[in-house]
C-alpha cells in the first residue's frame, strides 16, 4: 500500500512538472499578480510595505487555486481514475497522495517565490523568515481543503471556476492567521500574537490533512458512481 501511495504521488509530481503540466504556471501567476499591485496602488514605498503581507497571501491563495481543478479532473477525463479506484489504496489515501503532490508542485514553489516577491513589495528583510515559516505552515491546508473543492466539481464543465468559488471561503482562516503571523512581528510583540497565529496555522493544516481527504473521497464517490 505504501508502494502504491508513493508511486501515485511521484507520478502526479512528474506529470505536473513536465510539459503541459502547469507546474510552473502557479508561480508565474503569483509573480504577475504581486507585480501588478504597485502599478495599481502606486510605487509609494511605505504604502507597499503596509500592503505587502496581505498582498503576498492573497496572491498565494489565488495562485494555488489555479491548478486545483486538474487534481482529479485530468484522471477522470482520461479514464485513469477508474483504474486508480480499483487499486489497493482507499480513495481517501488517493486524495492524500494527490493533495501532497499538489502541494509539492504548487504550494512549495510559491513559498520559495514569496521572499523574492517580498522584495518587490518592500517587505523588510527581517520579516521574511517569519513570512516563509507562516506560509510553510499554512500552504498544506490550501491543497488539502482544495482537494474537496476539486472533488466536488469533478465532471462539471467549467468546474475550475466553480471550485474556486466553493473553496475560497474556506481559505479565509488561513489568510487571516497567515497575515496575522507576519503583521504581529511588525508590532514588535512577536512572542505572543505571532506565535499564536503560527500555531493556529499549523492546527488548520493538520485538521485539513484529516478532514480534506475524507471529504474529497466522499465527494468523488457521490459524483462518479
Amino acid at each position: 500500500m505504501r508502494r502504491a501511495f508513493l508511486a501515485l504521488a511521484a507520478r502526479d509530481i512528474r506529470l505536473a512538472a513536465g510539459i503541459g503540466g502547469g507546474g510552473g504556471m502557479a508561480v508565474f501567476f503569483f509573480l504577475t499578480v504581486v507585480a501588478i499591485v504597485p502599478l495599481g496602488v502606486g510605487p509609494d514605498r511605505p504604502v507597499l510595505e503596509l500592503l505587502a503581507p496581505g498582498m503576498l497571501w492573497v496572491g498565494l491563495l489565488l495562485a494555488s487555486l489555479l491548478t486545483l481543478d486538474r487534481m482529479f479532473q485530468a484522471d477522470v477525463e482520461d479514464g485513469s481514475f477508474d483504474l486508480l479506484s480499483m487499486g489497493p489504496l482507499p480513495l481517501e489515501l488517493v486524495a492524500v497522495a494527490k493533495s501532497l503532490a499538489h502541494w509539492v508542485v504548487t504550494g512549495l514553489p510559491l513559498v520559495v517565490a514569496a521572499p523574492v516577491l517580498g522584495i518587490l513589495l518592500n517587505l523588510p528583510p527581517e520579516r521574511m523568515p517569519l513570512l516563509v515559516m507562516a506560509m510553510l505552515a499554512g500552504t498544506p491546508a490550501l491543497s488539502f481543503i482544495g482537494a474537496v473543492g476539486a472533488a466536488l466539481t469533478v465532471g462539471i464543465r467549467r468546474g475550475g471556476l466553480l471550485a474556486s468559488l466553493l473553496v475560497l471561503p474556506f481559505y479565509i482562516p488561513v489568510l487571516i492567521f497567515g497575515v496575522g503571523a507576519v503583521e504581529a512581528a511588525a508590532g514588535g510583540f512577536e512572542g505572543q500574537a505571532g506565535m499564536q497565529a503560527m500555531l493556529l496555522l499549523g492546527a488548520i493544516s493538520l485538521a485539513s490533512f484529516v478532514i480534506g481527504p475524507l471529504g474529497a473521497a466522499a465527494a468523488l464517490r457521490a459524483n462518479l458512481r
Binding site: 502504491a4 501515485l8 506529470l15 503541459g20 482520461d78 477508474d82 487499486g87
Partner: peptide
C-alpha cells in the same frame, strides 16, 4: 478495461507499465 485508455501522453510505455505495476502491486 473500458473505452478510455487511461494513458498520460508524456509517460513512456515502460513508465506507464511500471507505474501500474507499483500501484496495483
Amino acid at each position: 478495461a473500458g473505452h478510455l485508455d487511461g494513458l498520460k501522453p508524456p509517460m513512456t510505455v515502460l513508465e506507464t507499465l511500471r507505474f501500474w505495476a507499483a500501484f496495483l502491486g
